[in-house]
Design a protein around this nucleic acid. Structure first.
Lengths: 251, 251
DNA sequence: CGCTTAATTGACACGCCTCAATAAAGGTGG
DNA sequence: CCACCTTTATTGAGGCGTGTCAATTAAGCG
């Protein structure tokens, strides 16, 4: 069987209160603003944005929202890592993405949020109520345009992932994943070639359409071949970007 | 191997002129307008839309655009079936979707069209230049809003497909595919339970992340089990929607 | 009708999954 | 900081679903 059908017991997630209640946020001090739709606003109008944004904190493993929930807010991740996923009734899970600081959170269709979102680490979010944002869009088309660009990019990413899931081998998937994360962390100021993987193997497996065991074996294989090194618990180093790129399969 | 690595010779596609040059289109006579973003405009403003839309005809197997092409126009499919896909250098292909009349075509990110688009049958399109549409959006926010809804829906569909590609068996994929097409054709006025499959087996395989042979075998299996029937060349009948639904795998 | 392309089926191979055992990592309380 | 326990990660052995290769049939088309 090519699919992960196993009904594994999953780590229980936690609902309810985030660690801190919402608090007002000062957008002018935001370190990741350039990565988000907020970059679409002029510096002198930042107070407009600040006035409708609220900071939120979620502890590790807490649910931010669930698939199908009414989507009345969108978020920017400002700290930590988030996993997005869909689940089937019989316990199969597909992780559709991992979000890093600067990433947009809250894409939804008319039937609510398209995926569930959970904090992998402690997560800090910047929350915008949809209707307030709509109002701001009326006055600031550039802001809206940035959001559309982001959604379009998301879709392009989703289609790349379809190619990965439909047509790549386990090795290629793993290599693609490591390079992708490495590039994204580099943009955020991470050290070149260093990758931090806060998610557990099961998350990676559910993201790549593999099993935990195959993820482990593939990682071990890459280590044996000298392509990567595990420098600490969740810290990896990519020793040959070139090799991994070739292995990740041609576009 | 779980992936379709084979470098198959593919049917050659055709570039160049569509069968007819662009011609002005009368939106008020459009039969599928309610399905598209055009539904976001009032009847008395339809002339605005007509004035910037051009009808285009593409012969079977002709390329409409290629991945990466500069995206200066969007389309609505008004007749025929379109396949969207990404290709790798070594010949692997992932079909990301099939478009029916009423579907939107032309999603792109800043780096151009996200996929290639080809006519499976003869295809009629309604073409809108992006900048002209932008101008119309300035005056008609509702129209723009509808387009966003469509993009959001696309993203939700893409995520469902990730679940299918990452976590479903061949049988489940095939059942999901048949039901999905059946439902979409029903919305468009097709006969209940009847499915028209203009695409070849290879297209289905590349859409579902399988091989031609597995698609064939799975279809044959469904026939033997009395769940479907092939009434004509590309015409199928779903004999047990219930059975197929159960087989398609829970959500 | 003849030729090309598409679809089907069989036999076999193999990559990834399943099951199982063990090791390593992470918390927690003392 | 150390025992203890739980969770996570790793590795091995074997099975199976789907891929590969090949032959045949059916469909499409000039």
């Amino acid at each position: 069987m090519t699919t992960g059908l196993k009904k594994r017991p999953r780590t229980k997630t936690k609902r309810g209160s985030s660690s801190t209640p919402c608090s007002v946020h000062d957008c002018s001090a935001c370190k990741i603003r350039d990565l988000t739709f907020c970059a679409g606003i002029e510096a002198n109008e930042l107070s407009d944005l600040s006035s409708i944004s609220r900071r939120m904190l979620f502890a590790k493993r807490h649910i931010i929202f669930q698939e199908g929930d009414e989507a009345n807010a969108v978020f920017n991740v400002t700290r930590g890592t988030v996993r997005l996923f869909k689940m089937t009734q019989d316990g199969r899970r597909q992780v559709t993405g991992f979000l890093l600081p600067g990433d947009f959170l809250g894409l939804a269709s008319r039937s609510g949020y398209a995926t569930s979102a959970e904090a992998i680490t402690e997560v800090e979010l910047c929350r915008f109520e949809s209707d307030k944002l709509e109002t701001l869009f009326e006055r600031n088309r550039q802001l809206e345009r940035r959001l559309f660009e982001i959604v379009d990019d998301e879709l392009a990413v989703a289609q790349d992932q379809m190619l990965l899931l439909g047509r790549k081998t386990a090795r290629e998937r793993m290599a693609s994943f490591l390079i992708n994360l490495s590039e994204r962390e580099e943009i955020r100021g991470g050290r070149d070639g260093a990758v931090y993987l806060p998610m557990v193997r099961e998350d990676i497996a559910d993201y790549l359409g593999l099993t935990i065991e195959t993820v482990c074996r593939t990682l071990s294989q890459l280590k044996r071949e000298g392509l990567i090194r595990q420098s600490a618990g969740h810290e990896f180093e990519l020793l040959s970007n070139q090799g991994l790129l070739e292995m990740s399969g041609p576009t």
